[in-house]
Each structure stands twice: as C-alpha cells, then as structure tokens.
C-alpha cells in the first residue's frame, strides 16, 4: 500500500485516490492549426519515463481536490505534492 501526500489532508492510503495521468499537459492554443498527427499526439501520447514523473492525482474519497505528485516510477518514491498551477519541484540530487 502506497501513501499519497494530499496537500490538504496529509498522507493517505492510495485507495482513497484517483489517478489522473501525466501532469502539465497544455491544451493547444489553436487546435484547428494542428495536423492529425499532432492532434493525436496531444490526445494519446504520454511520457513513460523510468524515473521521476509528474502526475495528477485526485483525493476522491477525501477532500476531492486535484493536485500534482512527483513520483519515481521505478522505486515509487514520492518526492512531494504540489498544487495545480505551481511549477514542478526541482529535485536536489
């Protein structure tokens, strides 16, 4: 069982959360100008790193707020949570 740090409620069990995929996707400013390939890329293609990954989570069984988590996809280590609109934290290595 993994603990996810909700920025509002604190550490809670993973089962209370809903996963929202990659964070910081920006809707194209002018979708009509995109080719089909570019549009499909925006809709379907996501990063799949073996390493640190910024992803969206929703505390579905708690405060029901969306937030972002920086998580390592290999070790499952969570670097931290931050609110939507905030920049990705820089990991001090």
């Amino acid at each position: 069982m993994q603990l996810i740090p909700c920025p509002w409620c604190g550490d809670r069990d993973e089962v209370e959360f809903h996963y929202g995929g990659q964070a910081h996707l920006v809707h194209p400013a002018d979708p009509d100008a995109l080719s089909d390939e570019e549009w499909a890329g925006y809709l379907f293609l996501r990063d799949n790193p073996a390493g640190w990954f910024a992803e969206r989570w929703s505390h579905a069984a708690g405060c029901r707020r969306w937030f972002n988590v920086l998580r390592h996809t290999v070790t499952h280590e969570v670097y931290g949570a931050y609110l939507p609109g905030e920049p990705v934290p820089v990991i001090a290595s």
Binding site: C9, R12, D13, V15, E16, A61, G62, C63
Partner: peptide, 8 residues
C-alpha cells in the same frame, strides 16, 4: 477534539 476527516 476538533479534528475531522473524510475517508473510507
């Protein structure tokens, strides 16, 4: 005494 939590 003044705590609350939404949970499963």
């Amino acid at each position: 005494g003044d705590a609350c939590a939404q949970t499963l």
